[in-house]
Each structure stands twice: as C-alpha cells, then as structure tokens.
C-alpha cells in the first residue's frame, strides 16, 4: 500500500506553482532571490555596489542594459560554468548555481539585474 503524503488538491496547487512562469508572478521576490544568491555564495565575489573578485551587481546590471541583454544571458552565465577573466589576468571557472529550477534561476537573475 502506498502511503499518501499529500492530498490530491495540494499536489495540484504545488504542481501549478512549480510550472507557473515567472512572468505570471509579476514581481521578483527580492528577499527570496537574495537568499538563493547568498546561499550559493555568489556574494563572495559579487557585492551589490563595490567590486570584489567579480564585478558588482550594479556594474553587471549596467553592462546588461547597455548591451541589451536580459536574464536569459545571466542564467547562461550562472549555469554553464564557463571561464571568467579576473582582474589579475587569470581565468577561473565560474561557479554553477546549485539549482536547476528555471523559475528560481530567473528570479535570481532578475534580482541581480535590478541593481
């Protein structure tokens, strides 16, 4: 006998929440996005305003606006692990965000680019 952990209604609600495109949620949950950003240690290299090992979120955001890039490009950056060039001329693999959930990735990317 299979133990029922969730009611069918709850399963439908959860499934809908997971599959709901972010655009439908209208607003990025900044606090939740920042939490994911920090839990992935992104803040170790990217400060909101000052340059650390990586550029600040403000600088990234400005660059994306200038080049007319959007969160899809940012997601590519945070999920591909491609080499990044550092100020000292060396290269390093960019850390890959620890979630495959596109909604979460989009939320983090949008929050980053909102700076």
């Amino acid at each position: 006998m299979i133990r029922r952990l969730y009611s069918p209604g709850l399963v439908i609600i959860l499934a809908a929440a997971v599959s709901m495109p972010l655009t439908a949620t209208a607003q990025v949950d900044a606090a939740a996005a920042e939490k994911i950003f920090k839990e992935n240690d992104c803040h170790k290299c990217h400060h909101e305003t000052k340059a650390k090992k990586g550029p600040s979120l403000k600088k990234i955001s400005a660059k994306y606006k200038e080049k007319k890039l959007d969160e899809k490009e940012a997601i590519k950056h945070m999920t591909s692990g491609k080499k990044v060039k550092l100020d000292d001329g060396t290269e390093e693999d960019h850390k890959i965000i620890d979630t495959k959930d596109v909604n979460v990735q989009t939320s983090v990317a949008k929050w980053m680019l909102s700076h």
Binding site: K38, E39, H43, K44, K53
Partner: peptide, 12 residues
C-alpha cells in the same frame, strides 16, 4: 571577510 562580508554571513 574580504569575501564573507554579508551582514548575516555567519548565519548563512
């Protein structure tokens, strides 16, 4: 703390 500088770093 040059990297670990969030206000809630230790909690995290």
């Amino acid at each position: 703390t040059s990297c670990h500088d969030a206000s809630d770093e230790e909690v995290l």
